[in-house]
Design a protein around this nucleic acid. Structure first.
Lengths: 253, 253
DNA sequence: CCCTTCGATTTGTCAGGACATATAGTTGAC
DNA sequence: GTCAACTATATGTCCTGACAAATCGAAGGG
């Protein structure tokens, strides 16, 4: 037996039909937890779908939907005629649309924010094109310095369409912009990003405690809600010595 | 009628049951083409699934599978009780697992490669951890300079497990590493990337026609095949003045 | 006139079945 | 003994049918 088949009975699988959580999602979560905790060994076969469905009292489409969601996450691989097996390496999530604030907070870095500017200005050509508004029309401009453990990490410059949010300086200093958007009922959907690098200007160096000419990581991002409207255009610079983007890619078949 | 419903009949939709291409995939391609060509206006409703299925002679699950694939691509949004509508902004693909060679070639930049080193060396701790091999065991090391239009763009340093590929210097200079892997039957699956920035060393400056201390964009990437094995670990530096990463993010619901 | 309630519409979830097709191991012929 | 053909097995695709839940607009009551 070169590739062991997982003993499904020993995995503690079982669905709760009184729960409002969809059955396929319950199963997917249990399988993911089993992989996470090592009860489902990497490389092991999952056992065929029909048998798994019969054991759990589910239909095959439901079991397939659960497995498919894990395949989409990159956790498992299906091969026709062979079966479904757990991927060997620990695969984390694909790149999420996260904010620097949340990133730092989950890393336990105690983020803080100082607002440099919070005004309304006429849109420059670049900003107007990114947000899809008229050139010269009013847009919000927010400029902030983000700190972690009392050390400056990044200068964040955001442009937003007018009348989208209540952008009080007080709230900006106590939370992240994305959290404010989500709290206002805006459903973020996608973003277009450009990541590059350049040397710091004297002004940026002063804000970030770096000498002029120090390498900075730059990120431009236009974020869209689920209606396809641009809700934010950001031009950010990060201290390269203290910050890097890390993410997971999946091949689309 | 605030939100026009697309006239499916005028979209030229129809499947070919003699084709080996799955029906749901045929439908998805036709819908995507219709969006791309503007025949399906952004924001317009797609029409309910049952009717669409009846018109095409398909079952609802098949139609749902087609639409779901487009939702996963970020091309459409479904809302229960409302319908499925085309996203307003033009959304391109999420970040793909592409190589610099392919990126440059599709951009018409005429890539060229100079191989600096192509040897076998003992694995350093970092490389051993990334590739999942024993520390000190033999690994391939390939170091290249990538040019576009006869200008240096990047220094690429790749480590590969032994006996994976025929790494002749000749082939390395005429094509990309990823293309060689795919040609050898390796199915790339996922990658973990870190993007940062730093100042150029004197040696790197000489290779890239930049002064020492110039800002460079750095990328470290470990690539995995569909069995979860690490097949490549790359440490690359790009001239920040000439190159940036651009990609699309999708929110995972 | 405003608010609540109801109902029509649409997607979300789930069942059970059928046949197609790729894979790998086994059997058979040479 | 080696190679080809066959067969068992698993996933891939597709069908029909059913009910649940969210949404939005219209009808009704205050």
């Amino acid at each position: 037996m070169p590739k062991p088949t997982a003993d499904s009975a020993a995995l503690g699988l079982g669905v709760d039909r009184t729960s409002p959580v969809p059955l396929y999602h319950q199963l997917a979560q249990q399988l993911e937890a089993a992989v996470e905790q090592g009860r489902l060994a990497p490389g092991s076969l999952l056992g065929n779908e029909l048998e798994l469905a019969a054991r759990l009292g589910l239909s095959r489409p439901t079991v397939r939907q659960a497995i498919q969601s894990l395949v989409d996450k990159g956790l498992m691989v299906r091969r026709r005629g062979v079966g479904t097996q757990v991927v060997h390496s620990r695969i984390k999530r694909p790149l999420e649309l996260s904010s620097l604030y949340d990133d730092l907070e989950t890393a336990g870095r105690k983020p803080a924010t100082r607002v440099l500017r919070n005004t309304v200005e006429p849109a420059t050509p670049v900003v107007a094109a990114a947000l899809g508004v008229e050139e010269g029309s009013d847009v919000h401009l927010v400029e902030r310095v983000r700190y972690a453990h009392d050390e400056p990490m990044a200068v964040l410059r955001n442009h937003l369409p007018p009348d989208l949010l209540d952008l009080s300086t007080e709230r900006l200093e106590s939370t992240g912009l994305y959290r404010m958007m989500r709290g206002s009922g805006i459903t973020l959907h996608s973003a277009r990003q450009t990541v590059g690098a350049r040397a710091a200007t004297a002004e940026e160096g002063g804000l970030l405690a770096e000498p002029a000419g120090a390498p900075l990581l730059t990120m431009e991002r236009t974020t869209f809600d689920d209606g396809g409207r641009a809700v934010e255009f950001g031009s950010h610079v990060y201290r390269a010595a203290r910050y890097a983007f890390e993410f997971q890619l999946l091949v689309r078949p």
